[in-house]
Computed example of a mutant assay.
Amino acid sequence: MRRERVFRDRSNLLEIYNNEDFIGRFRLPKEAILSLTDELAEVLSPATSRSHSIPAVLQVCTALKFYATGTFLNAVGDTVGLSKASVSRAVYRVSRALSNKLPQFPNHLAELNKANIKRQFAAMYGFPNVIGAIDCTHIVNRKHVLSINVQVVCEANMIFTNVVARWPGSTHDSFIVVHSSVGNRLEAGAVRDGWLLGDSGYPLRRWLLTPFPNPQSAEQMRYNDAHTRARSVVERAIGLLKCRWCCFDVSGGRLLYQPKKVRQIIMACAILHNMAQRNGVALPPDLPYLQHEEPDPHPPPQHERHHQGARIREEVMQHF
Rank of each mutant, 00 (worst) to 15 (best):
S200C: 10
I265E: 03
K242G: 05
R205E: 00
F212R: 01
H179G: 07
R185L: 12
Y223M: 06
S180I: 08
T228L: 13
E187R: 13
L197I: 12
P213D: 02
W195S: 01
S232D: 15
C246A: 12
L209F: 02
W207E: 01
Q258V: 11
S251Y: 15
C247L: 04
T171W: 03
W195I: 04
L241F: 10
S200L: 06
L204E: 11
V182T: 13
G239L: 14
Q220I: 12
P259H: 08
N214C: 13
A188T: 05
C246N: 12
V182F: 12
L256D: 13
A237Y: 02
E235T: 00
S181W: 08
E235M: 01
P213H: 06
A226D: 09
K261G: 04
L204V: 08
Y257G: 01
Y257W: 05
P211L: 03
S200V: 05
G253N: 08
E187Q: 12
Q220A: 15
R206V: 09
V177K: 00
P211A: 02
R192W: 08
Y202G: 02
S180N: 12
D225G: 12
P259K: 08
R231T: 02
R229H: 15
W245Y: 14
S180L: 12
H227A: 14
L186D: 00
V234N: 06
T210A: 11
Q264F: 09
S180E: 12
F175V: 07
R254F: 14
H179R: 11
S181K: 06
F175S: 10
F248Q: 03
R254E: 13
R244D: 05
N224P: 01
F175D: 06
E219I: 08
K242Q: 14
E235K: 00
F248L: 11
L196S: 09
L204W: 08
R205W: 03
V178R: 07
P215Q: 09
V182Q: 07
G252C: 03
P215A: 10
G183K: 00
V178L: 03
D193N: 13
V177S: 01
R185S: 13
R254D: 09
G253R: 04
L197S: 10
Q220R: 13
L186T: 00
P215I: 04
E235Y: 01
R222K: 15
G239H: 14
I265D: 03
C246L: 15
L256W: 09
L241K: 10
S180F: 09
D193R: 10
G198F: 00
Q220H: 15
N184K: 09
A190R: 08
A188Y: 03
G189M: 03
L240G: 10
P215H: 07
G253Y: 09
N184S: 08
G198N: 03
T171C: 11
G252E: 02
D225R: 15
V182Y: 07
D249K: 12
I238E: 07
W195M: 06
R244W: 05
A230E: 12
Y257R: 10
C243A: 15
L256G: 07
P203G: 03
H227D: 14
G183H: 01
T210S: 10
A188M: 07
V233W: 00
H179P: 03
C243Y: 13
P259D: 13
G253W: 07
P259T: 11
E235G: 01
